[in-house]
Design a protein around this nucleic acid. Structure first.
Lengths: 128, 128
DNA sequence: ATACCTACTTACTAAAATGTTAGTGCCTTA
DNA sequence: TAAGGCACTAACATTTTAGTAAGTAGGTAT
């Protein structure tokens, strides 16, 4: 069983990376850690409340098992989400936001806000 | 020459989409319009100042022609970026942010800020 | 006995995103 | 005369991301 590899394309240097300025690195880093089709949606669910795996699945039914698990594992790896096993029968696994995970709130809110605005702005074009 | 197709997976309904709540749609929409490897970096460059195509390329040299062009076309399609042809010899094409494009600033700043924080937080682990 | 629940893992496939290379036509500089 | 800048376009290849389907192991309900 080989260890799972998580990407860390973080820069080697805090000021610039290969001559790239920090804004570039910051944006890239955010997208790497929080980007992808499902991660922010999962985080949004966990902002509402901590949830068991199966509850999480029910709240985002269009996600596949595979993506749910791999997204959760990446979020856990980056210390945004905490996985807790509750000794019970049947065993329960609870996912919640870590303290650090709370820091994602502004990202979530800004993206949600912008997207909502964008939808409203273009709703006449879209809903023909 | 067939017309270029741009995705619009926008919801058909403002309140919920296939039973999905609005936060879900907003986040998805933002990621669709602004996501991807290069778009926000281009927008960040254009926040600094409007730029000609070749200047833009020079400021983000790791991007390929193809991605630069397709990203710019998508951003133009979504009315975030404005393309202006300057009649000169050789002809110049200027890209700048539209008024609507200015609304992306908070998204950019939040992602930049979070990513920068994340890099700093983990810099001890990363820079072994 | 059968089916289903839980929280996953594995192998495989499909689709989407990104990269590579070459080429366009016009003009300018060496 | 050759090379290079400009703003692209097109064909193709590769990489990355996401989806599908099945299996696991212990337990419960029918």
């Amino acid at each position: 069983m080989k260890k799972k590899q998580f990407k860390t394309l973080y820069p080697r240097n805090i000021e610039t990376v290969n001559g790239r300025p920090l804004d570039y690195c910051g944006i890239r880093c955010s997208m790497e850690v929080l980007g992808g089709k499902w991660k922010l949606l999962i985080v949004a669910e966990l902002f509402k409340s901590k949830k068991r795996y199966s509850e999480l699945k029910r709240s985002i039914p269009e996600i596949s098992e595979k993506m749910m698990i791999s997204s959760l594992q990446e979020l856990e790896h980056h210390n945004i989400v905490v996985r807790t096993v509750v000794e019970a029968i049947p065993p329960q696994v609870e996912y919640s936001l870590s303290k650090y995970g709370q820091s994602v709130r502004p990202v979530l809110e800004t993206l949600f806000g912008w997207g909502e605005g964008h939808i409203k702005k273009h709703s006449d074009k879209i809903f023909h």
